[in-house]
C-alpha cells in the first residue's frame, strides 16, 4: 500500500467497497464503453444486491456511469441526474455464489445502431463485468465475453478484430514506431464469430492518431483506449 491508500480515499460514504468501489466500477464501465450511454441494464450480485439500499450502491453505480468521481456529493442525486440527461437504466438483483461477493455487470444497449461488428458480441449490446475488491479498489474481469483483468492503474488499448494472421504484428508495429511500450497483452477469441480481442496495458497512453491508424485497418472492428485513472476517481 502507501500512506495515501491508508489516508483515503476521500469519498462519499458509507462503504469503501459498496459505495466508492461501486461508483468506480460505473466510472470505469463508462470509460470502457466509450460512447454516450443511452440505455444500460445493471445486474448487482450477492452482497452488492443484498445491501445495496443501505449502502447507496445503486446510486453510486449510476453516478459512476454519469462520470461522477467517488467524492462527488452529487452521487446522492444520481438517479435524478440520469433521468434529466435521458440515460435509461434498470437494475437486476441476483444471487450467484460463483461470482465474487461484490459484482456488478453492465449491459449497454446501443440503440443508436445495432451494428454487430461495432458492438462486439453480435447482439447489439456491450457487456462489462467488474468486482469491488475492497478499500475502494476494483477490477474489471469481463468485456463482451472476453476475460480481462484491469484495475485502472495502466493506460489500456482494446482492439476487436477479424481473427486473421498478422494482426498481432500489425498492432505491435503500430505502437512500436510510436515508441509506445506494451507492458502486458492478452488475447481472446470467439470461435463462432471468428472475432478476437486483444487487451493491452501500455506504458504510455495510446494517442488518438494511433487509435485512428488501428481503426483504419479493414480487419479491425473496434478500438477502445482508456487512460489510467487519476486520484479521486
Amino acid at each position: 500500500m502507501g500512506i495515501f491508500d491508508v489516508m483515503g480515499p476521500v469519498m462519499i460514504g458509507p462503504s469503501s467497497s459498496h459505495t466508492a468501489g461501486a461508483a468506480r466500477l460505473g466510472y470505469m464501465a463508462r470509460l470502457i464503453y466509450g460512447r454516450p450511454i443511452k440505455k444500460v441494464q445493471i445486474t448487482l450480485y450477492n452482497s452488492f444486491a443484498e445491501t445495496a439500499h443501505g449502502h447507496g450502491t445503486d446510486l453510486a453505480v449510476v453516478g459512476g456511469l454519469l462520470g461522477l468521481p467517488v467524492d462527488s456529493p452529487q452521487l446522492r442525486e444520481s438517479l435524478a441526474i440520469a433521468e434529466a440527461q435521458g440515460m435509461l437504466y434498470n437494475f437486476v438483483w441476483k444471487q450467484n455464489l460463483a461470482q465474487h461477493p461484490n459484482t456488478a455487470r453492465f449491459l449497454f444497449y446501443d440503440i443508436r445502431n445495432g451494428n454487430n461488428r461495432e458492438s462486439g458480441d453480435g447482439t447489439g449490446t456491450f457487456s462489462i463485468t467488474g468486482n469491488s475488491i475492497g478499500g475502494g479498489n476494483v477490477r474489471i474481469i469481463e468485456i463482451n465475453g472476453h476475460r480481462v483483468d484491469y484495475s485502472g492503474y495502466h493506460d489500456v488499448l482494446m482492439i476487436t478484430y477479424q481473427d486473421v494472421p498478422g494482426m498481432i504484428g500489425f498492432i505491435g508495429d503500430t505502437l512500436g514506431v510510436r515508441h509506445i511500450n506494451i507492458a502486458y497483452m492478452s488475447l481472446a477469441r470467439d470461435a463462432v464469430e471468428a472475432t478476437a480481442m486483444a487487451f493491452l496495458k501500455l506504458d504510455a497512453p495510446c494517442p488518438l492518431e494511433c487509435a485512428d491508424v488501428l481503426r483504419a485497418n479493414p480487419n479491425v472492428f473496434n478500438v477502445i483506449t482508456i487512460n489510467k485513472l487519476g486520484d479521486g476517481i
Partner: peptide, 10 residues
C-alpha cells in the same frame, strides 16, 4: 452518504 476521508476505512 456524506463526504468523508476513509482513514483508514470508511
Amino acid at each position: 452518504m456524506g463526504r468523508i476521508v476513509a482513514a483508514p476505512t470508511a
